[in-house]
């Protein structure tokens, strides 16, 4: 989608008047829809639809060997598939840059041990640990990918259940594990501190939250902040613009405020989701 100068001016004026093209305020989100446990083969999954942005996140858990320098910690990795269904720009290797940018930002946001406790994923020191694969599929791209993905990732991790390891036996060099067969014997991950990302898009003199793709085109740069329990876990400037240090601080404060609000809304939504709710069109 390309915009003409007149359209861009229209959006810019709307942002100045605090009345955006879809009637929102500058710090309002578009309506969201969240579903969890939608994929049976995954250990946890979530689908988030934020107006026109649609992402599916699935979590797979497998057994791996811990990093030699961190023998007590498990691993987590993020993979993003920018499918060409989302926008024609992603065709071929078009989405690759965006995918590495998002997955690296997610890795950075989840890297701290005060955000996610990796020691919980350790099975046997230096020998066995759980590795969490978070696969993100972008189905439709209507702006504000970062926020949508981070919410979906948090919901999918909330939904994830890790099989219970009953016992570990060591025989010489072989490590044998006994994993509980009972499906209800599962460990839930503690995701209370998992970060949520907020994109602040600078349009004119103001910053908007949750930009549509049209607004993203008018922006002179954006800041992505990852907020975990009111603290910043990652800040990342993107989109080719620059900011005055004072403006930057203002944006960061706004980001923290919005992030906390988003976290409250998400935990409220998650608490409403019933255990073992049936999913799909057939029910």
């Amino acid at each position: 989608m390309t915009l003409s100068e007149a359209e861009k001016t229209f959006i810019l004026h709307g942002v100045q008047e605090n009345f955006r093209i879809d009637g929102r305020n500058r710090d309002d989100y578009r309506p969201m829809e969240l579903e969890t446990s939608i994929i049976t083969h995954a250990f946890g999954s979530a689908r988030l639809r934020l107006a026109n942005t649609d992402v599916v996140v699935t979590v797979k858990v497998e057994i791996d060997v811990p990093f030699p320098d961190r023998p007590l910690e498990g691993k987590m990795e993020f993979f993003i598939d920018c499918s060409a269904n989302a926008t024609p720009d992603f065709e071929g290797r078009g989405g690759e840059n965006l995918a590495t940018e998002i997955s690296n930002t997610l890795t950075a946001a989840y890297s701290s041990n005060s955000v996610f406790d990796y020691t919980k994923l350790c099975i046997l020191k230096g020998r066995k640990c759980w590795k969490i694969y978070v696969d993100i599929l972008i189905l439709e791209c209507g702006g504000n990918l970062y926020d949508a993905i981070s919410i979906a990732v948090k919901a999918a991790l909330w939904n994830t259940s890790i099989p219970l390891v009953k016992s570990v036996t060591i025989d010489g060099n072989n490590v044998d594990m006994n994993v509980s067969e009972n499906l209800s014997d599962c460990i839930k991950l503690d995701i209370s501190a998992a970060p949520l990302m907020v994109t602040l898009c600078k349009i004119g003199d103001h910053c908007v939250v949750d930009p549509t793709s049209a607004e993203e085109q008018c922006s002179q740069g954006a800041i992505v902040v990852a907020i975990s329990k009111g603290k910043f876990s990652t800040v990342f400037q993107t989109g080719g613009g620059s900011l005055h240090p004072l403006t930057l601080m203002e944006k960061l404060k706004l980001g923290a405020k919005v992030g906390n609000r988003l976290e409250e809304a998400l935990s409220e939504a998650l608490s409403k989701i019933k255990e073992n709710g049936e999913m799909g069109f057939l029910n």
Partner: peptide, 13 residues
């Protein structure tokens, strides 16, 4: 003008 502000970890405002 700050062209890039990149932070990793856990910090308050």
């Amino acid at each position: 003008q700050v062209t890039e502000f990149y932070q990793v970890g856990s910090l308050d405002i």
